[in-house]
Computed example of a mutant assay.
Amino acid sequence: MMGLAAGDRAPLIALTDQNGTERRSDSLGGKALVLFFYPKDDTPGCTMEACAFRDSYADLQGLGAEVWGVSGDDAASHQRFAQRHNLPYPLLVDRGNGLRKAFGVPGVLGLLPGRVTYVIDGEGVIRHVFNNLLDGPAHRREAIAALQRLQGS
């Protein structure tokens, strides 16, 4: 299956986060969304990526965006990961990887879940897709650049 691309409409997101709060993309009130899929809580690359988004969270919010992380880990794992690294944004629980499949996030070698970030505008249209398993912090830079382009348009 081909993954969703820039210009595609994002599927509805309706998952609970690490605290059991339901997060729905149709309740963002026109805000942009940086949605990043990552392989696994508390692995080195994922921790670097999550902390990069944490360190730029105020900048991302200043660009009119919410940030949500997504992996197949359970709520307890997400809670430990968020607390350990002071993550200020929700981590969505995607048990069974239904949302990952809906977006068509590719796996790596059929073993690892991929690392892909989507920047979705306030109308629910994907404006930028960045797929890079090895450079977690690059996802933050890509998201900020995409949001800056959105604001300029």
Score class of each variant (00 low, 15 high):
90 P>S: 01
81 F>S: 05
123 E>A: 15
76 A>P: 15
105 V>C: 03
97 N>D: 08
35 L>T: 13
148 Q>W: 03
142 E>A: 14
100 R>Q: 07
132 N>C: 12
10 A>G: 01
151 Q>R: 15
91 L>D: 09
37 F>K: 06
104 G>T: 02
149 R>A: 15
125 V>L: 12
153 S>F: 13
29 G>R: 02
14 A>D: 10
131 N>P: 00
130 F>G: 14
41 D>M: 09
123 E>S: 15
133 L>V: 04
50 A>E: 00
106 P>H: 14
102 A>Y: 09
8 D>C: 04
19 N>E: 05
138 A>W: 07
11 P>D: 08
85 H>A: 00
34 V>F: 06
20 G>F: 01
47 T>A: 02
142 E>W: 02
9 R>G: 01
8 D>S: 07
90 P>L: 01
84 R>T: 07
22 E>N: 03
103 F>S: 03
93 V>N: 01
39 P>I: 11
23 R>Q: 13
120 I>D: 08
131 N>G: 12
15 L>A: 01
135 D>T: 14
13 I>A: 05
25 S>L: 12
86 N>A: 09
79 Q>E: 14
137 P>A: 00
29 G>C: 02
148 Q>T: 13
133 L>F: 13
8 D>P: 01
21 T>P: 12
125 V>K: 11
8 D>H: 13
108 V>C: 10
69 G>V: 11
75 A>Q: 10
26 D>S: 01
100 R>E: 08
130 F>A: 14
69 G>L: 10
38 Y>P: 05
78 H>K: 14
126 I>V: 00
99 L>C: 02
33 L>T: 11
41 D>T: 12
52 A>Q: 08
6 A>H: 00
6 A>R: 04
49 E>M: 03
130 F>N: 14
58 A>F: 00
72 G>A: 11
77 S>L: 06
29 G>T: 02
136 G>L: 04
28 L>M: 10
107 G>S: 05
62 G>F: 10
79 Q>F: 13
14 A>L: 10
